[in-house]
Structures are given as structure tokens and as C-alpha cells.
Write a protein that binds this DNA or RNA. Structure first.
Lengths: 226, 226
DNA sequence: CTATCTAACCAATCCCATAATGGTTAAACC
DNA sequence: GGTTTAACCATTATGGGATTGGTTAGATAG
């Protein structure tokens, strides 16, 4: 039998008639059988062919859709955090965040600079470690944001979420707040000066040095993360 | 009234009696009212205090739990991809993947090297662009894996998923396969040699150069991603 | 008058039974 | 031998009802 009369051609014609957009839904197989007047087995052969070509994709319990199968979501945060050590997290920060500082110095807008400044003072004036951590988080996040690359910012968010989950049992006693001469303050200000002064290499270096001292502190006293 | 008889102390005692593990569930407020013989308003004041201290966290519709509130999951892939351009993705790759190649040269095990080799030949012998892409993906993924840092590998997976979503409408015609002299082959092999030869700086540089040519190709012909 | 208690309501979440869907198998039927 | 049909299976979607923290208004002491 020539293919020009087969169910495949019939299905192709039906799909072409409807103007199908990406991710649009194709009627379920049982309906399509009645519509085209074809047995389900024959229909499925045709659908298999089209799926092989990449014009549609199917999933049990979900349906048949036009286009290419969407990328599966990577492992969840908790799954990643479960198999990661604080050491892994610290190493990743040492690799990624200096780059972000470099980019921030290149691309930060005055609005970004202002946000950085506010985060700095928020961390310095914190009355408790909890508030300090909020300010510190905001500072590092603002640097990532200032880079202007949505993907890199998203990667930072991912890393940050992993970090919080991994070191989530730190149990620091929340009496008092960070001392006025906490090492981070001067380091944060050095980073800020480099970024607002548009000096990418200095920003990268300052961030690296900052994270190195954080790492040292982490190794000596695991409950004092930063 | 001295606090030693207040609901807060009562609640603290009850929680101490039960030996509460992290993430354990505490009975719903309405039950706890009956258990402690306290009105719900008073109980909620005590719970508010404990939540402020960070010993428990609550969520509407979910319950009350011991410990600190788990980190919220960052935006989903599709949300990130929606506000990212192929340029953003390419830039992020240029920043991240050379680092991964550097780490791979430092930490790759013989098993990793073997996997890299297999991915290389799989991409070279691909009969279709589809198969080539599978091999290429596997090669880059194997490099990330060889670095030995689970967090960095997770970040690569995230970036890769974003990339696939962003350039998901490339619509390359899948006739034939990559030519024998496709630019990637020599570049991939250069990266492989640097990694298996334990030369981190050469690996980093080779990866950077590879992605630069990919970028050039992307700018000239957006439908030919790699 | 102030503070507390009670009851009801709200929005978010969970829970479970039911239906829908792609994938598979076996017998009936040309 | 190949096709059709019907029935099953595992996964996913869906919808209604129950649960839970959060809020409010009126009742109830003190």
C-alpha cells in the first residue's frame, strides 16, 4: 500500500489543517481514532513516526503535545544539598562569586550601586546575627543582580539556596549581634569600593579574599559561618 | 503574672518533654489548645515567640514544624528561561564552563577520562545532528562531573537545562549529520587532551576557545547552535 | 475599659477518590 | 499474518472535602 493513503498521511493532513502552535495539545488517541476513522493501533504507529521526527511528544497520563519535549527539571535543591558538603558549597562560592563581582563592576547601574550601599549599612547596623545575615545575603545577591545577566543571577540564587540548606543546622546562639569590627565589614566595603569604582579585577580579587576569610572561619569554627 | 506560669513556659515544657527532632511536626494549634488547656489566642502568642526565636516555623495549610524554615525553591527553569536571551546563556557558559574544565583537569579519575573518551567518539560518529547533540551534551556534562564538586555539577545542570529551553526553537533540519571536519571535533579533542594530561590552565583555555567559536557561530547563524 | 476567650471565617495546603491518558497485551477477526 | 477491538496497567490530572495557620468580630469576664 502506498503511504499516500496510510494513516500517517491522514494524520499529517489533519495536523496541518489545524494550525498547531508549539506546546499545543493534540486530542487524546481514543478521540483521534474516531476523528480519523482509524484503529488505535494504526494511529499509534503514525504517532510514533511523528514523535521520532520530533514534531510532537507524548507522556503517559498527560497527553500528546506539539513540539519538542521540554527539558526535565534538574534535581531538587534538597536532593543536591543532601549529597553536598559545606566544603563543596564553599568551593563553588569561591569559583562563582568572584566572577559575579567582576561582572558587577562592569555593568552595575547607579540603582544597583545604591542597593549595594543600603545592604552594606543594613548588615553593619544589624542588632542580631539574624538581621546581619539578611543584610549579608542581600549584599551578595545585589552583586549578582548588578552583573546584569539573568542566567548568572539564577545560578547564584541556586547556589545560595543550596548553601542555606547545607549549613542549615548551624545553631548559632543569637545573643547580641556581630561586633563592630567583624571581619566582613571591611571586606564588604572593599568589594563595594571596587564595584562602584568600576574596577572589575579589584572587585574579583576583593570578593575572592573575602570568601577566603569566610572559608578560614568556617574551617576553624563550623558554627560561625560568616 | 510571672512568666513561669504563662503559656509560653507551659509550651516550652511540653516541647521539651517530647524529644523533638529537626523537621518534626508539632500538633495543630486546635489540638495543642486542648492538650495544654490554653486558649488559642494565648497559645498563638507563645508560638509566635518560639517562631521568632527560630525554634519552629509555621505555614498556613501545612502545619507547625521544629527547626528553621527550609529555603524556598528558586524560580523554575521555564521562568528563568523566559526572561533570558541566548546571549545571556552563552555568556554564562563562557564564564562557568572553563572553570569546570580547570577543575576536571585537577580531579578527574580514570573512570571520568574514559567517559569523556566515549562521549567524544559518540559525537564524532553521530549519524544525525540529534545524535551529535546527545554526545556533545554528554561530553560537557562529563567534564562538569569530573570536577568532583557536586554543587558545581548541579549548577552546570541548571545552566544546561536553561540553555536547552532557551534555544528550544532552533528548528535545525535534521538531514545528514555533522561533517567530518566540524569545528567542534578538534576543539573537543584539545579539551580532552588537556584534561587527561592534567593541565588545568590548558583545559580552561581550550574550553574558552571552544565556546568562543560556538558563540561566533551562534551570532552568524542562530539556527546552528553548535 | 482592657484583656481574654470563643466562634466563625479565610486562604493555602493536603488528601483521597475518580477520571483521563499513553502504553501494553490478548483474544477475535478478517 | 496482520488488523481490530477490548480490556488492563502505570502515570498524571482533577476536583471536592478536610485540615491548618492566620484573622476578625462579638461575647465574656476582671
Amino acid at each position: 500500500m502506498p503511504e499516500s493513503t496510510g494513516p500517517l498521511i491522514q494524520l499529517r493532513a489533519w495536523l496541518a489543517q489545524r494550525e498547531l502552535a508549539e506546546n499545543d495539545r493534540v486530542p487524546p488517541e481514543r478521540e483521534l481514532c474516531n476523528i480519523l476513522g482509524v484503529s488505535r493501533g494504526e494511529l499509534r504507529k503514525a504517532l510514533n513516526a511523528l514523535e521520532e521526527e520530533g514534531v510532537l511528544w507524548r507522556q503517559v497520563g498527560k497527553g500528546t503535545f506539539i513540539g519538542v519535549r521540554p527539558a526535565e527539571e534538574p534535581d531538587s535543591l534538597t536532593a543536591i544539598a543532601a549529597r553536598s558538603s559545606p566544603r563543596d558549597v564553599m568551593e563553588a562560592r569561591l569559583k562563582l562569586e568572584p566572577l559575579l563581582a567582576f561582572e558587577a563592576a562592569l555593568n552595575a547601574t547607579p540603582s544597583h550601586i545604591e542597593d549595594l550601599k543600603l545592604s552594606l549599612t543594613a548588615a553593619r547596623d544589624a542588632r542580631s546575627w539574624r538581621h546581619y545575615e539578611t543584610g549579608d545575603n542581600r549584599f551578595h545577591r545585589a552583586i549578582a543582580d548588578a552583573g546584569g545577566n539573568t542566567v548568572l543571577t539564577a545560578l547564584f540564587d541556586q547556589l545560595n539556596a543550596i548553601r542555606r540548606t547545607v549549613v542549615w543546622s548551624r545553631g548559632r546562639n543569637d545573643t547580641g549581634g556581630p561586633p563592630r569590627d567583624h571581619h566582613s565589614f571591611a571586606e564588604h566595603e572593599a568589594i563595594f569600593r571596587a564595584i562602584s569604582g568600576r574596577d572589575p579585577r579589584a572587585a574579583k580579587m576583593a570578593m575572592f579574599e573575602h570568601l577566603r576569610t569566610v572559608e578560614q572561619r568556617l574551617l576553624r569554627a563550623p558554627e560561625l559561618v560568616e
